[in-house]
Structure formats: structure tokens, C-alpha cells
């Protein structure tokens, strides 16, 4: 990148403002988590973040987030494929509604899913009454909520890539004698892979931190269906600030690793598809 002469004004002003605003709103408050965690001795810190109930909450949060992201990867890819490659009635409406989990407040999603999957709900009375599968007020309820909020990610990362793939590639494969499934498997899916993984990581990262939609449907049973953000709230309500901060730090560390992974995946997507972000 060549350094241009500074014809345009406002560099110092806008960059300065950006850095100050970013520091005041995000960086300094976040640093409080790191600094205040240091008030605990390493032994105390370790005791808090590895307490049995907290460990159980990691298993619930990370395990179910992983499962929800996996569900969304499979169905999100299918939905993206249908939306880009096929025509069917109501397609535009479906396309617009895919973003609903981004726009719908999480508390609304939470109470709605609970009503739907509770014993007397539309789906719940069938699942719980007929099949004996309890969804609301247990781990499966959390899985449903996390699937809901992560639904748009894979669809929206895959859609533009699928749209942009040059049809010549697939035509070349077909003309060289490839079956359609071979073309899809060996030509199309490898191009989509980085975008699919990016969507998976985004859905996973969102699910790990999710609170609003989960607490209504989870039942919040200790050791069984408590998510990690709820553990932070619980500690806060008991005025155990250092403990809340310590758990928050472990979550921040996880978010940070995920953020790096997502950035790496996005760079890979750009390399594979030649798109600039």
C-alpha cells in the first residue's frame, strides 16, 4: 500500500476520536475484568473458576453451543443452497425472515420458545406428552434456544459465496464427465468450506455468550442446566464481585480465542474466493 499525500483532512481528528471513544466505552471497562481478577490470589481464582457448579456450567454452555452451531451448520447450508440455487414460492419472505433472530429481542424469543416447548405448548404437548421427551426447563430447551439465535449465521456467510461462484467451474467439471454430486462434493463444497466454518464459529461464539433467550427455557437447575453467563449473574446477586469477575475473565479468554479463530477463517474465505471484505 503506497502512502498517499495527505490531501484529505481529518485524519488526526477522526482517528483520535475513534481511539478515545473505543478506549472509554470498550477497552478500559474490559480491562477492569483483568485488573479486578488480580485481586484474587491464583489459588482463589482457580478455586472459583473450577468449582463443580461452574465446571458444569462450562459443559452446558460450550457443549450445547457446539451442538447448536453444528445443527445450524447442516441446516443453514441446506437453507442457503435452497435460497440461492432454487426457485420456490415464498422464497423472498423466507430470505427476509432468516434474520429474525438478529432483530427479535432475546427475551421475546425466550418466552416464546418456552411457551412452544412447555408441556402444554404446540410442540411440547406432542414431544413431552406423546414421546416423553422433556424439552422446556432442561438442557434440550437450551439447545433449542441456542439453535434459534444462531440460525442466521451460516446462512448469511454461505449465501453470498454460493451466489458468486462462477458457473463456468461447475460447467467445466460437468463437461469433463463429473456426475452432479461429484461436482458439488469436489468443486462447490471446498469453495464454501471456509465460509461454512466462519458461520459455524460465529454461531458458536454468539451461543456461548447468550443469556436472554436461554434463562427462560433452561429451568436453571444447578449442575444440569445452568449456563456460564447465569453463573456470573448469580455471583453478582450474592455480591461476590471477585468471583463474578473471575468467571467473566474465563469467558473473555474464550471469546478472544474465538475472535482470533473467526478472523483467521474470514481471511481464509477471502483467499479462497478472492473476495475483499
Amino acid at each position: 500500500m503506497s502512502r498517499r499525500s495527505h490531501v484529505l483532512p481529518g485524519f488526526k481528528l477522526t482517528l483520535g476520536y475513534t481511539l478515545i471513544y473505543l478506549s472509554l466505552i470498550v477497552l478500559i471497562p474490559l480491562s477492569a475484568v483483568v485488573v479486578r481478577s488480580a485481586e484474587l490470589s491464583p489459588a482463589e481464582f482457580w478455586q472459583v473458576v473450577t468449582a463443580p457448579r461452574v465446571l458444569a456450567s462450562y459443559r452446558v454452555s460450550f457443549g450445547l453451543s457446539l451442538a447448536a452451531a453444528a445443527i445450524n451448520t447442516v441446516f443453514g447450508l441446506m437453507l442457503a443452497w435452497s435460497l440461492v440455487r432454487y426457485s420456490f414460492p415464498g422464497k423472498k419472505l423466507v430470505d427476509a425472515l432468516v434474520d429474525l433472530p438478529f432483530a427479535l429481542p432475546t427475551a421475546v424469543a425466550g418466552i416464546s420458545l418456552t411457551a412452544l416447548y412447555a408441556k402444554n405448548g404446540w410442540i411440547g404437548q406432542w414431544l413431552e406428552g406423546e414421546l416423553g421427551i422433556k424439552v422446556a426447563f432442561g438442557p434440550l430447551g437450551i439447545l433449542v434456544a441456542l439453535t434459534f439465535i444462531g440460525l442466521p449465521f451460516v446462512v448469511r456467510t454461505v449465501q453470498p459465496i454460493l451466489e458468486d461462484i462462477e458457473t463456468e467451474l461447475e460447467e467445466a467439471a460437468a463437461s469433463l464427465g463429473a456426475q452432479r454430486w461429484q461436482t458439488v462434493w469436489h468443486v462447490v463444497l471446498p469453495i464454501l468450506l471456509p465460509a461454512v466454518l466462519t458461520g459455524f464459529a460465529l454461531a458458536f461464539a454468539r451461543a456461548v455468550g447468550e443469556y436472554g433467550s436461554v434463562i427462560f427455557i433452561a429451568g436453571n437447575i444447578p449442575m444440569v442446566s445452568e449456563i456460564t453467563p447465569l453463573m456470573i449473574i448469580t455471583k453478582l446477586e450474592q455480591y461476590e464481585y471477585p468471583a463474578a469477575t473471575a468467571i467473566a475473565l474465563t469467558m473473555l479468554a474464550a471469546s478472544f480465542v474465538l475472535l482470533l479463530a473467526i478472523n483467521g477463517l474470514q481471511a481464509w474465505t477471502e483467499r479462497v474466493t478472492g473476495r475483499d471484505r
Binding site: L22, V26, L27, I28, P29, L30, A32, V33, R36, A205, V208, G209, E210, Y211, G212, T228, P229, L230, I232, I233, L236, Y241, A244, T245, A248, M251, L252, S255, F256, L258, L259, I262
Partner: peptide, 20 residues
Amino acid sequence: LIDLPFSVSPVVAGLVYVLV
């Protein structure tokens, strides 16, 4: 860094201001 708030759990976002 600008994208960072998207990766932080909303609960942690609330907590940081309690700490400040």
C-alpha cells in the same frame, strides 16, 4: 477491536460497568 463487543457476552458487558 471495534468488532470486539460482538464477541463479548452481554452479561460480561454489564459486569464491566459494575466494576467501573
